[in-house]
């Protein structure tokens, strides 16, 4: 049986999340136009649903990669990318 592991945090899993966040900020600065707070909340909720749908990359079995259970996983890179896009929009001043 495969055991879920939390530590040691493998570098390969954190790296994908960081890369998604950085690239999200890069492309988020390109978005123009304002978004209301309700819209931001809706997009964030949709992104969590989508992250459950797409699942984590399949190679690891740790919580950092998003495996909560053996049959249930969230792709944290997707959520990190969405958060990065919102941060990038804040840089541009598009958040109203």
């Amino acid at each position: 049986m495969i055991e879920l592991q939390l530590f040691p945090a493998l570098a390969g899993e954190v790296t994908t999340i960081v890369i998604a966040l950085v690239l999200g900020i890069l492309f988020g600065t390109r978005f123009q136009g304002g978004m209301s707070k309700r819209m931001v909340g809706m997009v964030f909720g949709l992104s969590i649903i989508a992250a459950i749908l797409f699942e984590a990359p399949i190679f690891t079995w740790s919580l950092i990669a998003g495996f909560i259970n053996e049959d249930f996983s969230i792709s944290l890179a997707f959520i990190a990318a969405t958060v990065g896009i919102f941060i990038g929009m804040l840089f541009r001043g598009g958040h109203e």
């Binding site: 999200g24 492309f27 797409f54 890179a77 997707f78 990318a81 990065g84």
Partner: peptide
């Protein structure tokens, strides 16, 4: 765009 970044990182 977020999906594209997921595909890239995975």
């Amino acid at each position: 765009v977020a999906y594209a970044l997921l595909v890239l990182t995975g």
